[in-house]
Amino acid sequence: MTEQNQTKTNRLVVRLATAAIAMFGFGFALVPLYDVFCDITGLNGKNFSQGPADVASVDRSRTVKVQFVTVNPADMPWEFKPTLRSMRVYPGEDQTTTFYAKNSTAEWMVAQAVPSVTPSEAAPYLHKVNCFCFDRQPLDAGTDTEMPLLFVVDPELPEHISTITLSYALYDLTDDQKVTQLTLDNDKGRTSL
């Protein structure tokens, strides 16, 4: 290879290697991009609003059925269920319901529920004013609790949606919690995610 060709090759190789490294970074950039994309489009049923809802008036011309579903991952021994399976609500009206959780093991445990809304189109219209899923829930061995959920269905919910399903998966965070406790010496169960 001539010298000139060699420099040309070196430059090309540097550029291609940079491209490869950039693509490695892009792989990681897909993670926040994915969240942003889901937030903007409301895909994935994750972008519900939290905190006080800014709802003008109650729409009494129609009702929406809100269903509650709970899921325990395979390694989660708690009893976890909604007190009501479903509610019929007016859009714009404040609603309260509770979920029941029981730590049936002989160990102190911490759990947190992760919500998801179906259809995902409805997710931005389900305002959670207060939700047990905002915080970690500690429970002593054998104890149980009722966990509150305050929510409002936005009156601007598209007309064709008549049923919203709110699903919670309850995850065991006991190990995480122990680690956090050791490192941060935090108040038990009040460490928010």
Binding site: L16, A19, A20, I21, A22, M23, F24, G25, F26, G27, F28, L30, V31, V179
Partner: peptide
């Protein structure tokens, strides 16, 4: 060049989830 680094990235995320406590 465009996609093998993404594969390397995804297995690296797995590695971090398994051993370093991340939650990708």
């Amino acid at each position: 060049i465009a996609v093998m680094p993404v594969l390397a990235g995804v297995v690296t995320m797995m590695l971090m989830d398994i051993h370093f406590g991340t939650s990708f």
